[in-house]
Amino acid sequence: MNQIVEITEAAALHIKEMMKQNEEENAKLRVAVKGGGCSGLSYGMGFAQEVEEDDIPFELHGLKIVVSKEDAPILQGTKIDYKESMMGGGFTIDNPNAIANCGCGSSFRTATKVGTPEEC
Rank of each mutant, 00 (worst) to 15 (best):
residue 35 G to F: 08
residue 28 K to L: 11
residue 6 E to D: 14
residue 35 G to R: 10
residue 19 M to A: 06
residue 38 C to W: 04
residue 28 K to F: 09
residue 120 C to K: 08
residue 8 T to V: 09
residue 31 V to C: 02
residue 105 G to N: 11
residue 17 E to I: 13
residue 81 D to W: 02
residue 10 A to I: 12
residue 25 E to K: 13
residue 86 M to H: 12
residue 98 A to I: 08
residue 71 D to V: 03
residue 15 I to M: 03
residue 92 T to D: 12
residue 90 G to T: 05
residue 99 I to K: 07
residue 79 K to I: 12
residue 89 G to D: 08
residue 70 E to G: 11
residue 76 Q to H: 14
residue 45 M to D: 01
residue 111 A to E: 11
residue 49 Q to D: 15
residue 103 G to V: 14
residue 60 L to N: 06
residue 19 M to L: 05
residue 34 K to D: 08
residue 25 E to L: 09
residue 6 E to I: 14
residue 74 I to A: 00
residue 95 N to A: 02
residue 10 A to G: 10
residue 7 I to N: 01
residue 78 T to G: 02
residue 115 G to K: 00
residue 98 A to C: 10
residue 14 H to V: 09
residue 114 V to R: 05
residue 35 G to M: 11
residue 120 C to Y: 07
residue 31 V to R: 00
residue 85 S to D: 13
residue 90 G to Q: 06
residue 52 E to W: 08
residue 4 I to P: 02
residue 7 I to T: 01
residue 43 Y to I: 01
residue 30 R to P: 06
residue 24 E to A: 12
residue 40 G to E: 03
residue 3 Q to A: 11
residue 42 S to A: 14
residue 85 S to W: 06
residue 107 S to L: 00
residue 17 E to Y: 14
residue 41 L to I: 04
residue 70 E to S: 15
residue 104 C to M: 04
residue 47 F to L: 04
residue 79 K to C: 05
residue 96 P to F: 08
residue 21 Q to Y: 14
residue 70 E to F: 15
residue 70 E to T: 15
residue 18 M to H: 13
residue 31 V to P: 01
